[in-house]
Design a protein around this nucleic acid. Structure first.
Lengths: 226, 226
DNA sequence: TCATGTGAAATCCTTCACAGCC
DNA sequence: GGCTGTGAAGGATTTCACATGA
């Protein structure tokens, strides 16, 4: 598999995948780059270019087979298997993660939940027993688990990441509001709602007065384009 | 305020802000672009370039005053005020959002939680009463709220977004696993853990056998650089 | 001497525009 | 006629390298 595909492209593939799944569910057989682009919020050229990194999946004059494209994306993204995951941190954030059903639905199986707080260890949590984080390296290693979710306070995020990397973890979904440093062969994806909000407020007028805007009626509704 | 600053830059500013807050807490007075870069996981040149879009905040030969930079970033990102937010969707995802304390800690105040399910309306949820979504437009408009969090199923995400936009919302944090279309003057930031996971699995070997790796000892630990 | 701020260069990514094929 | 796949162009972002000032 070639390994110089832009990371931005890789981040868009799951979005295409999501759109296609929805289309398949609605019984759509064939989709044009135009339609897929609209559904994914990008341009048609971008869809075609992104897919062309991996092969020629379309039919000229016709478009792409929804089923074929789904199966190609599954293959490319390694989604035609389930993945074991460990979760570190059984605080409120970690608990929310265990209760988020979409991960399981998409084949990401949380195999262990770890914490170091004795009050949390051995408590049950959505069908999982919280284990002592000291058991973590051995279990990850023995079970060959390569994906971890970090949901600990920022002050311990780095040491947890270090331990995960030593144990063989290669992919980390990081909910801790901290940047973690990992070797080149480990990937980290950060999720920080506060940081997201703070980017959004940049674009807002700082002190627009209340009541300045009125409830718009159907007639002056802006046409959606973006 | 100039308005042609790359969006990537805006997304990095909250990360710098987060790093600086941590440094301030540790009593650090002055920071170099080098140090800030390390803490934020970017390059020193990038830090300097990013900041230079907004002014000259550093002292040559010295670095940046942590306090000054924090206050400049607060000003740039409009964080020297609190922001009212509405949350749409009181399902498990919406409930998790209300229980996530960091938003409040950073000045994002959830003022209303809406749902359309009668079983949820009027239930209490972390100090908030779930209201009927039909009250939403009028309340958003009257209270001048400009930020919304969408936590509804993907099938209703677009109609909720349309209604939010009509009511005057200008910034949306979208937890629904769906792309939503909004006018140019509205910003959307998507959070989709499943999509994030699916990008991560791209980089994993699909079928590395179990037990292939061993628990590494301290001596063969890879040096962290990334 | 040390670290910022920034032109210029390099790299990365997106879009244009169209040949080629169904 | 319609739509893909892709060279080439264009635009955006990052990095280099260094003048400048503390």
């Amino acid at each position: 598999m070639q390994r110089d595909i832009p990371e931005v492209v890789i981040k868009r593939l799951p979005i295409y995948y999501r759109s296609l799944q929805q289309m398949a569910q609605m019984g759509k057989d064939v989709v044009s780059s135009q339609e897929l682009a609209k559904s994914a919020g990008v341009t048609a050229t971008q869809v075609r270019r992104d897919l062309s990194y991996f092969g020629e999946f379309g039919k000229q004059g016709k478009g792409y087979s929804v089923e074929l494209l789904l199966s190609e994306l599954r293959r490319i993204l390694n989604l035609d298997r389930d993945w074991d995951v460990v979760l570190v941190g059984a605080g409120s954030l970690g608990r929310a993660v265990t209760r988020y059903p979409r991960l399981e639905q998409h084949g990401f199986r949380i195999r262990h939940v770890y914490d170091h707080n004795p009050n949390r260890i051995n408590t049950r949590l959505n069908g999982l027993v919280v284990e002592d984080v000291s058991l973590m390296p051995e279990q990850i290693s023995r079970e060959g688990i390569r994906i971890a979710i970090i949901a600990v306070p920022p002050s311990s995020a780095q040491e947890v990441a270090d331990e995960l990397v030593r144990s063989g973890i290669k992919a980390i979904l990081n909910y801790a509001p901290a940047t973690i440093q990992v070797p080149d062969d480990v990937r980290v994806y950060d999720i920080d709602p506060v940081a997201a909000m703070q980017s959004l407020t940049y674009y807002l007028e700082p002190y627009e007065s209340r009541r300045k805007r009125k409830l718009s009626s159907a007639s002056d509704r802006i046409d959606i384009t973006s």
